[in-house]
């Protein structure tokens, strides 16, 4: 499946990654070669094979729906770029 610049642009937008025109061209080249290598997968017959998401076929364990964490907001916010009164600061979203 050939990769076009529009695919790279769309992926960059979805991944919230700013890329320059130069970079976009380079990524088209790099990603095309990677996907060409990946396309070998299409040679494998996988009829009646179930996808494997977890190497041990384990399922998520359940636990009782009880609060186990203590409030450590101050500690967790110490590594944040900008906070105020316990809130994370971001550029204004609603005028």
């Amino acid at each position: 499946m050939a990769l076009e610049e529009s695919h790279v642009r769309r992926a960059a937008h979805l991944a919230r990654l700013a890329i320059s025109d130069d970079q976009a061209n380079r990524f088209v080249d790099d990603l095309s070669r990677i996907l060409e290598m990946v396309d070998q997968l299409q040679q494998v017959n996988t009829d009646n094979v179930a996808p494997l998401a977890h190497p041990l076929d384990a399922t998520q364990r359940l636990r009782a729906d009880e609060v186990t964490e203590t409030d450590r907001r101050e500690q967790y916010q110490r590594c944040a770029p900008a906070t105020e009164e316990g809130l994370y600061l971001v550029p204004r979203v609603v005028e």
């Binding site: 499946m1 990769l3 695919h7 790279v8 769309r10 992926a11 960059a12 979805l14 991944a15 990654l17 890329i19 970079q23 990524f27 790099d30 990603l31 990677i34 996907l35 990946v38």
Partner: peptide, 16 residues
């Protein structure tokens, strides 16, 4: 890292 983020985002996106 950017290459792998873009590859991953592309292969997970609608149609692929």
């Amino acid at each position: 890292v950017k290459r792998r983020i873009l590859i991953g985002t592309h292969t997970l996106s609608e149609g692929f």
